[in-house]
């Protein structure tokens, strides 16, 4: 264990998980650390001068930190921190730790937007929330022959954990899979519970040769939806800029109505 000192920056090395990040906060207090920055094992590039310390991920420590945060934050504030973690933005781990220290040490409010870290947390949480909302809208299921509604996504942020309950409530009577191909994991709902899954793509469902994995009339409904989309537009009001602002191009790949 490295002894702490107030004049040098400590680099905390954690495993990249949510609980791991919470344990960083725990260790800051446990070891009375001065200024810290955080890095995952993969990102970290050792150099001779910095003071590094490895963080051990313990569920018990993480839960104690969560409990502590609960006393300082509203439910929205709690959700905001978790969203910031899911943003996967490289600087956010350090921001979250500074933010937690502000909350615990100076009793700053989550609404003191004059502070740059407080503002950053609320802004990033908002970005993540926007994409979460977009995913609720842009996910398109296709019915497979096994009677499972299947959707693929590639969100900028890791929002899948934030949308599972929405889909579970809404589609309680159908089996579904939502798969994040960018991060290589998905969620399967079997009419009772949801579980995390990893698929082995021996057949790529998006290759035209493998269309047989989808139900017989799946394509017809896709055609009807595309027809519908074409017919609701009013040509004399066409406004592409506005359209693209609402439906950014990077999402088009997975939108049925955008396929030719």
């Amino acid at each position: 264990m490295t002894p702490s000192s107030f004049d040098s920056m400590t680099i905390l090395i954690y495993d990249g998980t949510w609980y791991g990040l919470l344990c960083c906060i725990y260790d800051v207090y446990e070891y009375k650390l001065g200024p810290v920055s955080v890095s995952t094992k993969e990102q970290h590039q050792p150099d001779a001068f910095s003071n590094t310390q490895e963080v051990f991920t313990s569920a018990e420590h993480a839960k104690r930190v969560l409990k502590g945060l609960h006393t300082k934050l509203s439910p929205t504030g709690m959700a905001a921190i978790y969203s910031c973690y899911l943003s996967e933005l490289p600087e956010m781990a350090s921001v979250i730790i500074r933010y937690a220290r502000l909350l615990f040490s100076s009793g700053i409010s989550e609404k003191a937007y004059g502070n740059p870290d407080v503002l950053k947390v609320s802004q990033v949480a908002k970005m993540v929330s926007r994409e979460r909302h977009r995913m609720k809208a842009f996910i398109r299921f296709r019915l497979t022959q096994d009677d499972i509604y299947y959707a693929t996504i590639e969100p900028d942020f890791n929002v899948l954990p934030l949308i599972v309950s929405h889909f579970k409530n809404r589609y309680a009577d159908q089996k579904w899979v939502i798969y994040d191909t960018k991060r290589g994991y998905g969620v399967f709902y079997d009419l009772h519970t949801t579980e995390e899954i990893q698929l082995d793509f021996t057949v790529d469902p998006d290759k035209p040769t493998d269309t047989n994995i989808f139900a017989e009339n799946e394509e017809q409904y896709q055609t009807l939806w595309k027809d519908y989309f074409k017919h609701v537009s009013i040509d004399s009001r066409k406004n592409t800029a506005l359209h693209v602002r609402h439906v950014p191009r990077r999402y088009w790949k997975h939108l049925t109505e955008k396929q030719v």
Binding site: A137, R170, D173, F229, S233, I234, K238, T240, L242, H243
Partner: peptide
Amino acid sequence: LGNTGSGICHTYTSDG
């Protein structure tokens, strides 16, 4: 099947 309350826009027409 389904619920309401989220008020989601699932897509936007070419006129936005």
